[in-house]
Write a protein that binds this DNA or RNA. Structure first.
Length: 403
RNA sequence: GCGUCGGUGGCGGAGUGGUCAAACGCACCUGGCUGUAAACCAGGCGCCCUUGUGGCUACGCAGGUUCGAAUCCUGCCCGGCGCA
């Protein structure tokens, strides 16, 4: 099913680093990389109508297999024409496998554990994971992930095959093999065990993908590109091993997932990229702190996705100058007549809204606050990626200028 | 004027003899958020003190009863309602 055009081509490389600028081609358009995929878990960017996606600089979005499976259901989306038609999405769509929900609804459930931890916490192990998962809604088995729906308690088993089948039904352009996102505080032995499972699941995912491809091609006229996921936690050995393994598989692209040590994401990415083939696009799952994005781009990552810009917006935080965080709930913004960022060209900033006004909307819980800030935050982060791309294009001479 | 009910922290509102610096909301202050269980969650919120099973001042005002009062009694001030 290779289309005439390659999925991905590198347009320019930064001679000083591993950074590269590229083009990711899908049936719904070309993504200019490095790029950020906006998160649209339930086929909607929260607080941002699709009419404003372009204004926010959105090139592509990420929807979620688990969430769409629960509602409105993969079959329904398929029968209504696929996710692009159903949600009137004009951009390419990347769907996540549901692997992350195994983590957030499983070991992370009810604990304040994120996939990125500070080494301090990891070291003291104060919240060390125990097998006692009080009330967790998901459980990893060797066959897949068993979920108890957080909406109605119904039980669902998401196997690698099921995840791929759902993603084909959704009609995503870019799909991801089911993987296990581990608890960053889990011991190494567990990381190894989980890694073996993720690799086994990848083989099953590839088989399923190849099995469903002909039917999907008939139905949609094209087939999605498959991402295999590199895991391995914070261990260099495991990360490299995983990257070598995934890089050799019959996948179209590579995603780097799992748990990280805050401030050390860059080295984890570094190890992985060293082992990966040059030709395939690389996606860093769930990472979106501006500093982390900048660092990962230098390490050769092409695409990102993160809830950070949209969630922070709904929580009243806007990116200020140089992508610093402005917590608009803080008293000091109540009389601040400055725009969020004087150098920003987004609609929110160009409309002339002051921090004081936006802070007022946030305090009053006006829904427009979420919209204005979401637009701004996405724009600001997309601008970072756009500038990175420009920098690479201007520094790097287009070597394999296949495009 | 008589009767009656009531006056609690910025606001609303519990409490009606000790375990009350006073539930719970709201407001306010601050922190967190990295493949979205998240327009969410957590902490603080009389004054002093670094701390605490710490000190001080507090439940309209002034007295009183009691080992002990936001809670009981008396008077006063203020408000709602009813009757004149």
């Amino acid at each position: 099913m290779p289309p005439r055009e390659p999925l991905f081509s590198v347009v320019a490389r930064d001679p000083q680093s591993r950074a590269r600028a590229g083009m990711l081609r899908t049936a719904h358009g070309i993504i200019e990389t490095p790029a950020l995929f906006a998160v649209a878990t339930k086929a909607s960017i929260k607080a941002l109508p699709v009419w404003l996606w372009e204004a926010a600089g959105v090139q592509a979005v990420v929807v979620n297999t688990y969430h769409l499976l629960l509602a409105p259901g993969a079959d329904r989306v398929a029968s209504l024409g696929g996710v692009h038609q159903f949600a009137r999405i004009p951009t390419p769509v990347f769907s996540d496998s549901g692997g992350f929900q195994a983590f957030s609804l499983g070991v992370a459930f009810g604990r304040s554990v994120s996939k990125v931890v500070r080494s301090q916490e990891a070291a003291d192990g104060s919240r060390a994971s125990s097998s006692a998962q009080n009330g967790a809604l998901s459980r990893i088995t060797n066959d897949g992930v068993q979920f108890r729906s957080h909406r109605d308690g119904s039980v669902h088993l998401l196997t690698p095959e099921a995840s791929i089948r759902v993603q084909h039904l959704l009609g995503s352009d870019l799909i991801v093999a089911l993987d296990e996102c581990t608890d960053p505080l889990a011991p190494r032995e567990y990381q190894e065990e989980a890694l073996a499972r993720t690799h086994r699941w990848l083989a099953q995912s590839i088989a399923a993908h190849q099995q469903f491809a002909p039917e999907t091609r008939r139905r949609l006229g094209w087939t999605p590109a498959l991402y295999g996921v590199v895991q391995g936690g914070r261990y260099e050995e495991l990360r490299r091993e995983s990257a070598r393994f995934v890089g050799k598989q019959e996948v179209d692209a590579i995603a780097i997932g799992g748990s990280f040590d805050a401030g050390d994401i860059q080295s984890a990415v570094h190890w992985v990229v060293e082992e990966l083939p040059e030709s395939k696009p690389r996606h860093l799952l769930g990472i979106g702190e501006p500093e982390d994005i900048r660092a990962a781009v230098r390490e050769g990552v092409d695409t990102f996705d993160c809830v950070q810009p949209t969630r922070l917006a709904r929580h009243g935080i806007a990116y200020g100058p140089n992508l610093t965080r402005l917590n608009l709930r803080n008293a000091r913004y109540r009389e601040d007549s400055a725009p969020l960022d004087p150098t920003c060209r987004c609609m929110t900033c160009r409309s002339g809204f002051s921090r004081a006004y936006l802070a007022h909307l946030v305090r009053e819980r006006e829904m427009a606050a979420a919209t204005y800030l979401t637009l701004h935050n996405l724009f600001a982060l997309n601008r970072l990626l756009r500038e990175e791309r420009q920098r690479i294009l201007s520094l790097g001479r287009s070597n394999d200028s296949a495009a």
